[in-house]
Amino acid sequence: MAIMFRTTKALESEIDEYLDDVSQGALVFVQGVKNYMNENKSSFETHLKTIDKLEGKADSLRRKIENDLYLHSLIPEHRGDVLGLLESMDDVIDTAKVTLNQFDVERPYIPEQFKNRFVELAETTSKAAEAVVLATRAFFKEVKLVKDHLHKVYFYEQEADKQSDQIKRDAFALEELELCQKFHLRYFALHIDTLADMAESVADRLSIYTIKRTI
């Protein structure tokens, strides 16, 4: 019995740690985007490394959690749901990492008037990711609060859509840019926006799982 209690306790803190990592990943992502826009190269590199580490750690934590859930046959009713939830949550931090990496590899040219708007977009998507992390925490700890967080996820996702759409329209309307540069701007607006889309797909799963979490 004591062993089971210890396993439960350990798993609880592992899930918390995992969600911390995803949330932190979203924050680091915003900082990275800001650094790129401000052309603060060394800080950008540091954030790139941090998010890489966070993603790796989150991955191994997720595997351990999944393994322990099956090994000790815990939460038989919700095991599949929790696994799906953690895996789709993994896509959130993955997207953050990949996007930041793409900035590093492709070094897109961002005209001055677009820099702030990219930062704003990154902030909105990050807020969606943070809200979904809170919703997930609530799913485990206080299920009736899940809805309070979910509506924020949907709100920020729509905001991010609008912002990225505007960036694309303005980029293509600008005559002094080459077509390839316009494509690049559109491409990065899309990449950053994907983070909010990922958060939304986690939210969609959560809203169903929450209904299932009644006795």
């Binding site: 089971m4 439960t8 899930i15 919700h78 799913f139 299920v143």
Partner: peptide
């Protein structure tokens, strides 16, 4: 009372 999903299971 809010009980963690895993604690509830336990």
């Amino acid at each position: 009372i809010n009980v963690h999903l895993l604690k509830m299971d336990f």
